[in-house]
Simulated scan of single mutants.
Amino acid sequence: MPELSAAETVRAADKVIHDIGGKWMLDPALSLHGKELGYANPFAFYFAGRGGVLGDVDAEVVSAAFGWFEPGFVRAMWDEGVAVAGAREGARRYAVAFASWGEKHLPDDPRLLELAERVLGAAEGSGLPLFGGWRAEPLPDGGPARLLQVLHVLRELRGGLHLIATTAVGLSPLEAALAHGGEGRAKFLAWRGDFPDPAALTPRRLEAEEITDRLAAAVYERALTPSERAEFADLVGKAGSAVLS
């Protein structure tokens, strides 16, 4: 049976999990679902939904947990979003919306779900508020809806670890945005004005990626055997092919 090291599993699976999340987050169908629930602004739905697990907090807390968005934009979108139905209800509505998306787009894969839930259980949540908040949320009973929510929580795990890493290497939120996508990425995250040269940030970005990979690999090492890691990576790849092709 094929085997993978924990580091190889990170390289094989984490980007696919990230991209599956990006696919549903940016799908117009999700924005339409939010609009039907009273969120006229898709960004307001995104912030109240994804950040709602943090509870009734000030926007500064949300900005700290999300990491890279321009703080004034976070405040505007968070305040607009929670005005619709509050924070925790916003998270519940967001989960319902992406569960519905999962039912339409993800395969029903009980084995992938089993392995992914074991990875979730092996992760340490210290310093990862969005991951901890979403891991504590109730899961659908089963099927693609449950699988998508589990993959979302795994995405929050990687995102939280990477935010720790970018902070550790001294990248500010704006610098982290620039390092990972240049001015286009920074502008998408609502930053404006003159930007420093992204090329100068590359060494610290690479260092942060290495730290993130190492932290993520430790979770796979605890959660799965080498053969299970190979199986997990293969099944994640198949789910990615179904969603991203």
Rank of each mutant, 00 (worst) to 15 (best):
residue 1 M to G: 11
residue 4 L to E: 03
residue 5 S to K: 00
residue 6 A to V: 05
residue 7 A to G: 06
residue 8 E to W: 08
residue 10 V to A: 06
residue 12 A to V: 00
residue 12 A to R: 02
residue 12 A to M: 00
residue 13 A to F: 10
residue 15 K to L: 14
residue 17 I to F: 10
residue 24 W to Q: 04
residue 26 L to W: 11
residue 27 D to T: 03
residue 27 D to V: 02
residue 27 D to K: 02
residue 27 D to L: 01
residue 30 L to F: 05
residue 30 L to T: 11
residue 31 S to P: 07
residue 31 S to A: 11
residue 33 H to P: 04
residue 36 E to V: 12
residue 36 E to Y: 10
residue 38 G to Y: 04
residue 42 P to D: 10
residue 47 F to A: 08
residue 49 G to K: 11
residue 51 G to P: 01
residue 51 G to K: 03
residue 52 G to N: 08
residue 52 G to W: 08
residue 54 L to V: 08
residue 57 V to P: 03
residue 58 D to F: 03
residue 59 A to P: 01
residue 61 V to Y: 01
residue 62 V to Y: 01
residue 62 V to H: 00
residue 63 S to E: 04
residue 65 A to H: 01
residue 67 G to F: 00
residue 70 E to Q: 13
residue 71 P to C: 05
residue 73 F to M: 12
residue 79 D to I: 08
residue 79 D to S: 13
residue 80 E to K: 11
residue 83 A to K: 11
residue 83 A to V: 02
residue 85 A to R: 12
residue 86 G to K: 08
residue 87 A to I: 02
residue 88 R to Q: 15
residue 92 R to H: 15
residue 93 R to Y: 00
residue 94 Y to G: 00
residue 95 A to T: 15
residue 95 A to Q: 14
residue 99 A to Q: 13
residue 101 W to K: 05
residue 102 G to P: 07
residue 105 H to Y: 11
residue 105 H to L: 07
residue 107 P to D: 01
residue 109 D to A: 09
residue 110 P to A: 09
residue 110 P to C: 05
residue 115 L to F: 03
residue 116 A to F: 11
residue 120 L to H: 06
residue 120 L to N: 08
residue 122 A to M: 01
residue 123 A to C: 02
residue 125 G to Q: 11
residue 127 G to H: 06
residue 128 L to S: 00
residue 129 P to L: 05
residue 129 P to K: 03
residue 129 P to V: 05
residue 129 P to Y: 03
residue 129 P to F: 02
residue 129 P to H: 01
residue 133 G to D: 06
residue 133 G to P: 07
residue 134 W to R: 15
residue 134 W to H: 15
residue 135 R to V: 11
residue 136 A to T: 14
residue 139 L to E: 15
residue 139 L to T: 10
residue 139 L to I: 10
residue 141 D to N: 10
residue 141 D to R: 15
residue 146 R to I: 06
residue 147 L to W: 09
residue 148 L to P: 09
residue 149 Q to K: 13
residue 149 Q to A: 15
residue 150 V to F: 12
residue 152 H to I: 15
residue 152 H to Q: 13
residue 152 H to L: 12
residue 157 L to N: 09
residue 159 G to V: 04
residue 160 G to W: 00
residue 165 A to E: 01
residue 165 A to V: 03
residue 165 A to L: 04
residue 169 V to Y: 04
residue 172 S to G: 09
residue 172 S to Q: 06
residue 175 E to R: 02
residue 176 A to L: 05
residue 177 A to I: 10
residue 181 G to V: 10
residue 186 A to L: 07
residue 186 A to N: 09
residue 187 K to Q: 12
residue 187 K to T: 10
residue 188 F to H: 11
residue 189 L to Y: 02
residue 190 A to V: 03
residue 191 W to Q: 03
residue 192 R to E: 14
residue 194 D to K: 14
residue 196 P to W: 07
residue 197 D to T: 13
residue 200 A to D: 11
residue 200 A to S: 15
residue 210 E to R: 14
residue 211 I to S: 13
residue 213 D to K: 10
residue 215 L to K: 09
residue 219 V to R: 04
residue 220 Y to E: 00
residue 223 A to N: 00
residue 223 A to S: 02
residue 225 T to D: 04
residue 229 R to E: 00
residue 231 E to V: 00
residue 236 V to H: 00
residue 236 V to P: 02
residue 237 G to H: 04
residue 238 K to G: 01
residue 242 A to M: 05
